[in-house]
Amino acid sequence: MIDILYFAWVRERIGEAKDQLETEAKTVSELVQELSSKDARYAAAFADPSALRVAVDQKLVDFDASIIEAKEVAFFPPMTGG
């Protein structure tokens, strides 16, 4: 079971802050494809992956990163701290 977190407009577009699911996906990209096929809200949120950032177990990674054995994957827009 993997926790999937959403922040900022990704959370608003999907309408959930968190999902939990069993997945066969091996990489972030495969997970994105799986989520996008769930329903239109997910497809809309993931329509342009270049507008998104992803963290696996709270470390920023690329979309080709492995999620095998990951506990938590988070999707969000580019950060705007400071």
Binding site: F76, P77, M79, T80, G81
Partner: peptide, 18 residues
């Protein structure tokens, strides 16, 4: 600015934007 996981939303009289 660019690597700490914070996101700002401006809430104005006529709506809100990230």
């Amino acid at each position: 600015k660019s690597r700490a996981p914070f996101w700002k939303k401006e809430v104005k009289q006529d709506g809100a934007i990230w």
